[in-house]
Design a protein around this nucleic acid. Structure first.
Length: 264
DNA sequence: TGCTCGATTACCT
DNA sequence: GGTAATCGAGCAA
């Protein structure tokens, strides 16, 4: 295996050697064989790419979240293995893609050795290659030039920022769906991969300040600070916290009338 | 078998 | 800021 580059990630001191067996550098599997809370900040600045028959789209990662399996009530794998989350229980470096809200896909990268179902959710990125294809996927053929003529008040600059801002948008821009569930991001020749920042001419990871805070849109374990993002980057998604979910009482017909109040 | 909820987004006011 | 869209997973009965 040809070693083409080596550097040290600023956030954790994790020494990384990148190997090259095909056209694009990939982070090695051992990079992902660690707790998700260690992998997540190290992914910031790195580049997720998907090479499909239509072309290659790549995004520099600016926002991620760690999900820690049995340790984490908000993790899909918290309650054990199911058909949907089976990939999380497998070896590290694979993509776990799931479908949510009836219309969106979200992509995770599996961490830890097989049997420890941890993963890092990719929440947002900045498109650094294949922007034309990304625009077509996001806004359609007529809007591939990035103009805002089709709808509403969104201007071109906002559209560029929003190409991969949010987990659903990122998957749409990169053309990621359930067909890529289980895809190996570390194997040479595979359709998806994670590359170090320098592979796409980006600044080194850790060159900007990494911020840490609570995760977005979850109701369980919402206080855990397992969301990581690059401070001041426009491509980070808007933070929206959910109120803590309280156990719902059994629906008893008389109960609502007795209570009277909808919310405490 | 049926129901509820969700690691979201786009559009409208 | 509010809400509709939309459907699969998971749970309860």
């Amino acid at each position: 295996m040809k070693i083409i580059s080596s550097w040290q990630l600023a956030s954790s001191g994790y020494a990384l050697t990148v190997h090259n067996q095909d056209a694009t550098e990939r982070l090695p599997r051992e990079f992902f064989g660690r707790p998700a809370t260690e992998v997540a900040p190290d992914l910031l600045g790195c580049v997720l790419w998907h090479a499909s028959p239509a072309g290659l789209v790549a995004a520099r990662l600016v926002e991620v979240e760690a999900y820690r399996g049995a340790l984490d009530p908000a993790s899909h794998s918290y309650r054990g293995r199911t058909a949907r989350n089976a990939v999380m229980f497998g070896p590290p470096g694979h993509a776990y893609v799931y479908f949510t809200y009836g219309m969106h896909y979200c992509v995770n990268l599996v961490c830890q050795p097989a049997g420890l179902p941890e993963a890092v959710l990719i929440r947002a990125g900045a498109v650094v290659a294949g922007a034309d294809l990304a625009r077509r996927r996001r806004y359609g053929l007529a809007d591939a030039d990035g103009s805002a003529k089709a709808s509403g008040a969104r201007n071109g600059r906002q559209r560029e920022r929003d190409l991969a801002r949010g987990p659903g948008r990122l998957c749409q821009a990169l053309g990621i769906d359930r067909s890529l569930d289980g895809a190996d991001a570390c194997v040479p020749g595979g359709p998806i991969g994670i590359s170090p920042p320098e592979a796409f001419g980006q600044a080194e990871a850790g060159s900007g300040a990494i911020r840490v805070g609570p995760r977005v849109g979850i109701s369980r374990a919402a206080d855990l600070p397992w969301r990581y993002w690059l401070a001041g980057d426009d491509h980070v998604s808007a933070y929206k916290a959910l109120p803590p979910r309280e156990p719902q009482p059994k629906p008893v017909s008389d109960r609502a009338a007795e209570d009277g109040t909808m919310h405490g």
